[in-house]
Design a protein around this nucleic acid. Structure first.
Length: 377
DNA sequence: AAAACGGGGAT
DNA sequence: ATCCCAGTTTT
């Protein structure tokens, strides 16, 4: 069997397998390019089972390009709350506004136009063009690189850009005539259901017969991938400040950067690294932070709980303290006027404001599970 | 080419 | 505890 026959076999068998075994997923029930687009953005770095409920809520709330383009950003972030990588939501809305203005609300169907949309890179452009419009463009994600690296025994590091380009070329050659959408989805479906990262189900694989990785007995060592650096730890004090009415002091994060424009409890990095609860040290650090950032004074604090939030590059190790405000040491006779990014909220207000999951967990613990609706179980 | 950017599920 | 995931943007 030569290389060309190995490719031909792969394309034919994979396509047939997909058409027999594809999952019934919400975004597969139509060819609406807007729905396909939403699903592909949500699925970046995120599992199918996590995305499904978000997808339903999102298209219910924003059923069309125009509806999403016209929505307040706050509502879009709230609909994305808990999904992570919030720039996806902001870029998506920015791109949808461009589609409304420049393309009359119709998702474009050429590579250059789709690729130029904010938040749409090589993978998503290929996915939209192939799945929504059946155009013969490759859609190479982590699943596809794993499947191809095993079947064709490719040992290049998949973290390298040059490897992705190689894979895209190969993936494009494999697309059967007129079946780009099903084939590309089949490639990803095989990676998700059979050719899994660990313990691949080779015995049920439709292309086992000509899989070079399996023949060489190296399916478990592929794909080759350089290890990522572990996230750097960051110890932080968090202030859960309440007023006489039981409202909680929250603040909105800056326009750019980590968790941009989401809401949170005030917090500041601990000067030294300590492990035991130390209310005096926490009070000093948080009072200094709140004086500078909000112009308010912090009274005594009491330890409430620990929390952790792991990003791909940072590990927040949080010590949460409760407390209340006192007259500012700088302006003891002034009323406590807050900067615009700060706000007192009650549980009902959480329905409008988007918080990262770690703060939802803290607030849920504080309120004793009532009131706050996190998206998680 | 490397870093920034969330969160959860599987093992 | 460790790895990984239907990636894109910025530096």
């Amino acid at each position: 069997m030569n290389n060309s026959e190995q490719k031909q076999y792969f394309s034919t068998e994979l396509l047939a397998w997909y058409r027999r075994n594809k999952r019934d997923l919400p975004w597969r029930r139509s060819r609406n390019p807007y729905y396909i687009w939403i699903s592909e953005i949500m699925l970046q770095q995120t599992r199918v089972d996590t995305v499904i409920p978000y997808f339903h809520r999102f298209v219910d709330k924003f059923p069309t390009v125009d509806a999403l383009a016209d929505a307040p950003e706050e509502e879009v972030l709230k609909a994305w709350e808990g999904l992570g990588y919030y720039s996806r939501a902001r870029n998506l809305q920015s791109a949808v506004r461009e589609v409304k203005e420049r393309y009359g609300g119709v998702v474009p169907d050429t590579k250059d136009e789709v690729f130029s949309l904010k938040g749409v890179g090589p993978y998503t452009a290929g996915a939209i063009l192939s799945i929504a419009y059946n155009k013969p463009e490759p859609a190479v994600d982590g699943n596809v690189m794993r499947v191809l690296s095993r079947y064709f025994l490719i040992e290049e590091d998949i973290m390298k850009g040059s490897t992705r380009v190689t894979m895209e070329k190969l993936a494009q050659e494999l697309i059967p005539e007129g079946a780009a959408g099903d084939f590309n989805q089949g490639l990803m479906e095989l990676g998700a259901l059979v050719c899994t990262p660990k313990s691949p189900g080779c015995l049920t694989c439709p292309v086992l017969a000509h899989c070079a990785g399996r023949a060489a007995g190296v399916e478990d060592t592929l794909p080759v991938k350089k290890k990522a650096k572990p996230p750097r730890p960051e110890q932080r004090y968090v202030a859960l400040i309440t007023d006489a009415a039981g409202r909680v002091l929250v603040r909105q994060r800056p326009q750019e950067g980590l968790l941009a424009r989401l809401w949170e409890l005030p917090h500041t990095e601990a000067p030294g690294l300590l492990t035991l609860p130390d209310a005096a040290a926490a009070q000093e650090a948080l009072a200094g932070h709140l004086a500078e950032d909000a112009g308010v004074g912090l009274g005594q604090v009491a330890w409430l709980m620990q929390a952790e939030h792991v990003f791909s590059h940072i590990r927040w190790e949080l010590e949460v303290y409760t407390g209340g405000l006192v007259p500012s040491p700088l302006r003891p006779d002034e009323p406590q006027l807050l900067p615009s990014q700060y706000r007192w909220i009650s549980p009902d207000d959480m329905e409008q404001l988007a918080f990262p999951n770690v703060f939802l967990r803290i607030l849920n613990a504080y309120y004793g599970q009532q009131a706050i609706i996190a998206h998680k179980k």
